[in-house]
Design a protein around this nucleic acid. Structure first.
Length: 256
DNA sequence: ATGGTAGAGGATCTA
């Protein structure tokens, strides 16, 4: 079973890339972030034609998440319970015993800003929710743009980025609290190339210079970690015309 | 000193 996550930074712009990518990789599940579309504008027909069902939680201009899947999911949840948030950032869906969660964690903009405080509060509420989800669903896979580079290995220049947003101690601690629920960073279950990143700024020719961060992750519960066969970042997508600034991350799970 | 690019929407805001 193949599952993936991709921050597409506007599905309207990126739909051709997404359709090509689905045709090439044929994942069972693809989690999308930053669709930036109201649900009524979601390109359901085009995605159906590609052989995928859609589950969506969108809004205009910012945010928006979706799960594309070959099989129908159930038990959809599109908000963190007991947490007031106008921003559409989460979507959970169950396939058989597998609980899939698609998340777009806040960026935080700048350390100490209001958006940064929102990010840390959001992560606390999110972690509490994931705890409960893991109790209900032992086979849980969490996909998304976490907007946190967990380790200095995940940063193109750790010294230059030290203390900055996406890298700061508080953000990394929040990420580790999430991991401490019993999740594994699937990418680090395997030997990986040095300087592997999932996001490169559009500015300063960052991709050409590999000035990136690894902020898109697939986190797996213990039962799924045992079944995980591979995890890789498809940075080829970043070389396309009008690319997303993020690359997809793909995991393969052995069948039970 | 605070660039630079992309997307949305139609001036800035977000990333």
């Amino acid at each position: 079973m193949k599952l993936a996550t991709w921050n597409v930074n506007s599905l309207r712009v990126r739909l051709p890339h997404v359709l090509d990518w689905l045709a090439k990789y044929q994942p069972d599940v693809l989690c999308l972030q930053e669709t930036k579309l109201e649900d009524k504008n979601f390109p359901i027909d085009e995605i159906h034609a590609a052989g995928y069902l859609t589950s969506i939680s969108g809004q205009k201009t910012y945010n928006g998440v979706a799960i594309l899947s070959k099989e129908p999911g159930k038990n959809a949840v599109a908000a963190i319970p007991h947490f007031v948030d106008e921003q559409k950032r989460v979507l959970a869906l169950t396939f058989g015993n597998l609980r899939v969660i698609c998340a777009y964690i806040p960026n935080g903009q700048e350390v100490g800003s209001e958006k940064y405080k929102y990010k840390l509060g959001w992560l606390q509420a999110f972690t509490d929710w994931i705890h409960d989800e893991m109790v209900a669903y032992p086979d849980l896979a969490l996909f998304g743009d976490f907007n946190v580079a967990p380790d200095d290995r995940d940063v193109y220049d750790p010294k230059a980025c030290e203390g900055q947003v996406l890298v700061s101690v508080a953000e990394r601690e929040a990420f580790q609290k999430l991991i401490s629920l019993g999740l594994s960073d699937s990418f680090r279950l395997f030997k990986q190339p040095e300087k592997s990143f999932s996001w490169w700024d559009y500015r300063m020719q960052a991709f050409r210079r590999n000035m990136g961060l690894r902020i898109d992750h697939v986190l797996l519960s213990a039962s799924l970690s045992k079944r995980c066969l591979s995890c890789f970042i498809d940075k080829e997508t970043r070389k396309l015309d009008r690319p997303s600034d993020h690359a997809p991350v793909i995991v393969e799970l052995a069948n039970q």
